[in-house]
Simulated assay, not measured.
Amino acid sequence: MNIESAAINIIKRGVELDTKKRYTEALVCYQEGLQILVDKMKSEIDEATRTYLRKKVEEYMKRAEAIKKLVIQQKEAGQFHELVHIENNSTGHSYKTLFGRFLDEEVQYVVVEDPYIRSFHQCQNFLRLCELLVRSCSNLRHLELITSRDGRSEGDQREWFSNLSSDLTKYRVKLIVKYSETLHDRQIILSSGWIIKIGRGLDFFKAPENKFCLGVYDMDLRPCHETTVDIVHSKNVKQSYG
């Protein structure tokens, strides 16, 4: 019953997120859990167990469909809002985990507004985001970064962006870097209409304790600073970049 208990754990997490109104995250959990249960049901010989599994699948599928409709309704009404609170020292908050579910073939243009993509580790965070975007958004063609200049390492900053820009062209993605000394907002705007606002911007990970500890490369294992993530949807974004 290990497979079934794994599915139940994922679905329980879905119910927990559902209760917190983190609907898009809950949907991902429901879909993952349902897939495991469906596979288990197909291979199950015992009729009573099959009936039980079928009942569970129908129950959670119904809820998943209801959430899908709810998300569509809220998007259409311009009322979608999901709030994620990242606690101090908590883990499990890589960019993929936080908002990877919104990165798909619909995304053609991404704008990143963050005044602190300047020092080496901050530019590395931006690089991690670029890697995720290239892997997830097959139709991405434009990536715009709005940030501020770093007086101390401006030459390095320019060189890092130049290297990244030439690399992104291999994936048919054009990087446009703009500088603003008055920028304060920190947000990621997707041409599909999703807007991810992170209180601390991309730089919410704590420095690793040393170069050989868990979390150096896998950001889901890296402890974080406390921050909040607001996810909203705007049809105006689609009009601007559509």
Rank of each mutant, 00 (worst) to 15 (best):
126 F>S: 01
149 R>H: 13
155 G>P: 01
79 Q>D: 14
124 Q>L: 13
88 N>K: 10
89 N>G: 02
87 E>S: 15
65 E>G: 06
64 A>N: 08
161 F>V: 01
64 A>S: 15
148 S>L: 04
130 C>T: 09
69 K>P: 00
116 Y>R: 02
96 K>A: 08
158 R>Y: 13
66 A>N: 08
139 N>M: 07
132 L>D: 12
135 R>W: 14
114 D>R: 02
94 S>E: 05
61 M>P: 00
125 N>L: 14
77 A>R: 11
174 K>T: 08
65 E>Q: 13
172 R>T: 00
154 E>C: 08
152 R>V: 07
106 E>R: 06
84 V>C: 12
86 I>D: 07
157 Q>E: 11
117 I>S: 11
135 R>K: 12
140 L>S: 01
89 N>C: 04
162 S>F: 15
76 E>N: 13
85 H>K: 09
92 G>N: 03
109 Y>D: 00
142 H>M: 12
78 G>S: 05
136 S>W: 04
71 V>K: 06
106 E>N: 13
67 I>A: 05
66 A>W: 03
156 D>Y: 15
147 T>F: 03
108 Q>A: 03
68 K>Y: 08
110 V>H: 05
167 D>G: 12
146 I>R: 11
170 K>P: 06
166 S>V: 09
133 L>I: 01
133 L>D: 07
158 R>N: 06
130 C>I: 02
147 T>Q: 08
135 R>D: 13
127 L>N: 13
159 E>Q: 11
114 D>N: 10
71 V>H: 09
82 E>T: 07
107 V>N: 07
143 L>F: 10
110 V>E: 09
64 A>L: 03
120 F>S: 15
70 L>I: 03
83 L>C: 11
147 T>C: 14
131 E>N: 09
71 V>R: 04
136 S>H: 10
70 L>D: 13
68 K>S: 10
82 E>Y: 00
108 Q>H: 12
124 Q>T: 08
118 R>S: 12
168 L>F: 05
141 R>E: 13
102 F>K: 03
89 N>V: 00
144 E>Q: 15
88 N>V: 04
159 E>P: 00
87 E>L: 12
75 K>S: 10
92 G>V: 05
129 L>H: 07
105 E>G: 12
130 C>G: 04
92 G>T: 05
67 I>V: 06
97 T>C: 06
165 S>A: 11
148 S>W: 04
164 L>G: 04
103 L>I: 01
152 R>I: 08
94 S>K: 03
81 H>D: 06
68 K>A: 08
107 V>T: 07
116 Y>C: 04
123 C>T: 05
124 Q>D: 15
136 S>M: 09
97 T>S: 15
115 P>Y: 04
81 H>M: 11
106 E>Q: 15
173 V>L: 07
131 E>P: 00
97 T>F: 01
91 T>G: 03
139 N>W: 02
119 S>A: 13
109 Y>T: 00
153 S>R: 13
149 R>Y: 11
